[in-house]
Amino acid sequence: MDDIILDVRDISKIYMQGKIPVNALHDVTFYVKKGEFVSIMGPSGSGKSTLMGIVGCLEKPTAGKVIIDGIEVTSVSDGQLPRIRREKIGFVFQHYNLLNSLTALGNVELAMRFSKVSRQERVERAETLLKKLGLGDRLNHRPTELSGGEQQRVSIARAMANWPAIILADEPTGEVDSKTRDAIVETFKLLKSRGQTIIVVTHDPDVAKHCDRVLRIVDGTVVDSD
């Protein structure tokens, strides 16, 4: 099992809504191998985003274990989580979440600042990534000057910046047209062909059909994996 990069075991997450406990996830168990392109599908409110948050070390589960690249991230202290997020996870969000005050290059470069990468290397790496994703002529454009597809590609470049173990994409095609969606999927396939592990949360079967595996989640638990 050396090739398993993400191991999720018996995850539960209970939120308190006022005084009422809400069972967002229960007994979620699955794994993802290195270099796999996996999608997580499920209806709204099924717990997909909560699962992404836990796998992305943005929040902790109520019970269970998450092991990323050999590290049991659910047992490390809060102070160590930022380093794990920097080194192991690259996020791609539905709303791109780029900083409007920065250029495309600045947004990608920003991700490496917290990893103490030198300025020269940050700029070189950001330029290379953006050029590989077809944004060589958009380096100095701000997000407001880019199309939805371009913004999402900047977001993907940013996720790639620290060479993470896993890219976690939350509805990355949720706000784009079909042409742009296909371009984004092609980008993920390109990254997969280079050995990158990608997990995509999506509603869209046209995205899921390109994945190696699809995990279906209903009412807070994984019901199917194919």
């Binding site: 930022p82 380093r83 997020r85 969000f93 979440n97 991700a111 917290f114 990893s115 940013r158």
Partner: peptide, 16 residues
């Protein structure tokens, strides 16, 4: 708020 969330997701520490 959202900007700080993005920075945290990118690995920004409390001191950053």
């Amino acid at each position: 708020t959202r900007e700080f969330g993005i920075l945290r997701a990118m690995g920004a520490e409390t001191k950053d």
